[in-house]
Structures are given as C-alpha cells and as structure tokens.
Design a protein around this nucleic acid. Sequence first.
DNA 1: GCCAACGTTGGC
DNA 2: GCCAACGTTGGC
Length: 242
Amino acid sequence: MPRYWLFKSEPECFSYEALERAPQRRTGWDGIRNYQARNFLRDDVKYGDGVIYYHSNAEPPGIAGIAVVVEESHPDPTQFDPKQDHYDPKSDPNAPTWVQVSVEAVAPVTPEVGLPAMRKNPKLEGLELLRTGSRLSVHPVSPEHWREMLKMAGFTEDPHAKWLEKHGLDTAAKPAVSKPPVSKSPASKSTAKAAISSAKPASAKKPVKSSTKALAKAGVSKANVKTSGRSKPANKKGDGGH
DNA sequence: GCCAACGTTGGC
DNA sequence: GCCAACGTTGGC
C-alpha cells in the first residue's frame, strides 16, 4: 500500500510549471494507456498520496516538482473523444478501460534533480525509474526513496507532509500495516475518509500527459515531434527478442 | 499459444 | 537522430 508515487510527464506536453498555472493548480492525469500504470491509478493511488513529478523526454530529464493526489480513480474522458490522440474506440462508456486521477501542485523542485544525479545516488538503488528498460510512467516509490529524492531536491521539510497537515490529514508515517490507534478520544476516527469524499473534481480540460498530444493544441505539428523511424525490420536483436 | 512485425517510450 | 527495450497486434 504505497503512499508515494512517481508520475512521468513530458514537459513539452504538460510540465510541472503548467500544473502550477492550471486552474486550482490541478489537472486530471489523463492519457495513460498502459495496463500496469492504469492498474496503479485504478487500484492503489489514493487521496493524499505524494507524487514525484518527473519530466521525461526532457533535456535534461529529472524531477521538476512535488504534487499530491486530490481525486482518486475515475474514467479518463479523453478515451471517448475521437479528436484526442488517446481516443480509444474500443473502450465502452459503460465499462471504461482507462482511468485518471487528479493531482495538485505542491512545490516546485528548482533546480530540477536530474536523472544522472539520481543514477549516481546509491540510496536510490531499486527505484523503478532507474531500472534498465523501465518505461512505466506511473509507479510506486518507497518512503526511503521519497525522502532521499526530497533531500536531493534540497527540501529540509517534506512539503507533501505539510500539505497533508494543512488539510487535516494524518501525516504519521505508517507501516504497511497500520496499527489500530490506542483507544483515545472515542469519535476521533480517521479524517482521511471524510476528506476523500470531499475531494472535488479538478478542471477537466488540459493536455494529455506522456505523449505528443498537447503539441497539437499548441499548434505544433506533430510531425516535428518525433518521427518514429523503424519502418524496416531493423536488426533481429532489437525487436521482440524473446 | 507462438512469435514476427510493428509501434512506443525515453535516454543518450 | 539513434536505438534498446519494451508492449501490442494479428496471422497461423
């Protein structure tokens, strides 16, 4: 039951700065079209979870900010819109294939923590992002790795923990198995639940993550973005090397 | 169910 | 721009 995540976004598509400028500093994390990432969003990403906002396909790639989950899994509207790059005609509106969560900006990381520095840090060993061949755009982060990344970012206090406090949520670091509170004031049940139901939908409209989507909106020809070469068999080693 | 072809991600 | 390492598709 992770409480921390790393979300990737191409800054050309939707940067951390763009999130800070968004209405309510929020956005729906749409455009996820990978089942493993979707399952995390659908089943495990919860209100109040901390998010490392990572810029992929950037120069340089790295951590650009800290965010927090403010709305749990709900259908990703872009899957039903034929004009969207991430339109999925096979998705049944009565049983949507793809979901999104909503996140809110918490704090920028300036300067960014670059990927090379992360790779050099032995304390980040085991981080999914750093695994060779990893492409998972949403994945859990251990509390140890979370703290180490914040440290590299120069934080002396955890801005996410402060956000939780400010919103009346439990900030106590919990073990995987939470122990029942030693009986106290009776009715002082967890406040998190109530907070969840009060989570409001974030603004609906914004560019899609992890893709070239936003460029179209910005009037940039998609052709400029990437010419996925590879029209030929290429080498026998590269593809499907199982 | 296998696997070749093909499309995508994302670092470099 | 190159290409490794994926994930998906579809013929069989």
